[in-house]
């Protein structure tokens, strides 16, 4: 599988990273280089192997249903680039 410039632009859009034409051109080569290299994984026989789910055997712990957090609006909003009263502000979204 090799990527072309359209694919690079599509991936950039999906990643929400603006990309210039020149950057896209450069990225085509880089991505193809890296992808060609990782594709050697295809040689590995993985018959009957389950994908890894937990690196170290461990069991998911479940929390009790108790309110222990929240009510920290000032902390939540402290770093907001555009704080509007008690809200985060974003460019108007038309749905």
């Amino acid at each position: 599988m090799s990527v072309d410039k359209d694919t690079v632009n599509k991936i950039a859009r999906l990643s929400r990273v603006a990309i210039s034409d020149a950057e896209a051109d450069k990225m085509v080569g880089e991505l193809n280089g890296i992808l060609a290299w990782v594709e050697q994984l295809g040689e590995v026989d993985v018959t009957g192997i389950e994908p890894m789910t937990a690196v170290i055997p461990n069991k998911l712990r479940l929390r009790e249903d108790v309110v222990t957090d929240g009510d920290v609006r000032d902390k939540v909003l402290a770093n907001a680039p555009a704080k509007e009263g008690s809200f985060f502000g974003v460019p108007k979204v038309i749905e």
Partner: peptide, 18 residues
């Protein structure tokens, strides 16, 4: 991304298990 997930990610996690 769609269509590549198994070939790349799932395969990589299987290799990781190996």
């Amino acid at each position: 991304s769609a269509g590549f997930y198994d070939a790349y990610y799932t395969q990589a996690q299987k290799v990781r298990a190996l």
